[in-house]
C-alpha cells in the first residue's frame, strides 16, 4: 500500500511536475481548438456528400468513411508523420496531427450528421422547397437545425473522443499533456506525473461524460 501511494500519488513530485504538465495542457487545448472545428466542418461536408443525388458520389463517400473508420488513428498519424516524408512531404507534428485527425474525425462526425439529417422527416424538406427555398437554404434554415438538435448527444460524445484522441499526439513528440507528463515520469522515475495528467483529463471530461450519459438515457426512454 505504501509502495502504491509512493509510486502513483507522490504529491511532491506532482507539484514539481505541475509547470511542465500545465504547459502540456495548454498545447492540448490548442490542439483541440484546431482539431475539433476542422472535424465538425469536415464531417458536415462528408455527410452532404454521402447524401448526394449521384450514386457515384455517395458510394465514394461511403468507401472513404469506412476506410477511415477501419484504420486506427495512431496508424494514420504515424503514416502521415513518418511515412509521407519518404514522398518528400515533411510535416510538423501539429500539421501531421491536424491532417490525420481531420481525416479520421470527419468520418465519425460525418456519420453522426448523416443520421441526424436522415432523422428529419422528408416533409420538412418538401415544405421548405415548396415555398421556393433553394436546396442550400432549406438545408441551412430548416433541416440542419433540427438534425443537429437530434444528434447533439452523439456529437458531444464524439467530441469527447476527439479530446481523448489528442493524447496520441504524444507519440509523434507533440509536447501536449501526456507527452509532458511522460517526460516528467522519465525524469523522476515515478508515475505520479501521469496520474496528475489523468486527473486533469478527468476534471476536463468527467462532467461531460456524465452529461452525455444522462442525455442518452433521456432520449432512449
Amino acid at each position: 500500500m505504501e509502495a502504491l501511494l509512493q509510486q502513483f500519488f507522490d504529491f511532491a513530485i506532482m507539484a514539481r511536475a505541475l509547470p511542465l504538465v500545465l504547459t502540456g495542457l495548454g498545447q492540448t487545448l490548442v490542439l483541440c481548438l484546431v482539431v475539433i472545428p476542422l472535424g465538425l466542418a469536415g464531417g458536415l461536408c462528408v455527410a452532404l456528400f454521402s447524401l448526394a443525388r449521384s450514386r457515384a458520389v455517395r458510394w465514394t463517400a461511403a468507401a472513404m468513411i469506412d476506410f477511415f473508420r477501419a484504420i486506427p488513428p495512431l496508424v494514420l498519424l504515424i503514416f502521415v508523420y513518418a511515412g509521407l516524408p519518404f514522398a518528400g512531404i515533411r510535416l510538423s507534428p501539429l500539421a501531421a496531427v491536424a491532417i490525420a485527425f481531420l481525416l479520421n474525425n470527419s468520418s465519425y462526425y460525418g456519420e453522426i450528421y448523416r443520421a441526424g439529417i436522415e432523422s428529419v422527416g422528408r416533409g420538412q424538406w418538401d415544405a421548405a422547397r415548396s415555398t421556393g427555398l433553394k436546396p442550400h437554404q432549406a438545408l441551412i434554415y430548416v433541416v440542419l437545425p433540427q438534425a443537429i438538435r437530434n444528434v447533439l448527444p452523439d456529437l458531444i460524445s464524439n467530441t469527447v473522443e476527439v479530446v481523448k484522441l489528442t493524447s496520441l499526439a504524444s507519440v509523434v513528440a507533440l509536447p501536449e499533456l501526456l507527452y509532458s507528463a511522460d517526460m516528467a515520469r522519465s525524469i523522476t522515475f515515478n508515475t505520479s506525473p501521469i496520474v496528475l495528467a489523468a486527473a486533469i483529463y478527468l476534471v476536463m471530461l468527467w462532467p461531460i461524460v456524465r452529461l452525455v450519459s444522462r442525455l442518452e438515457r433521456r432520449i432512449a426512454s
Binding site: 416533409g123 420538412q124 418538401d126 415544405a127 421548405a128 415555398t131 430548416v142 433540427q146 438538435r149
Partner: peptide, 11 residues
C-alpha cells in the same frame, strides 16, 4: 402547397 401532415418547422 398545404400538406396533410402540416410539416411546420418545429424549431
Amino acid at each position: 402547397m398545404v400538406f396533410q401532415s402540416f410539416n411546420l418547422y418545429p424549431h
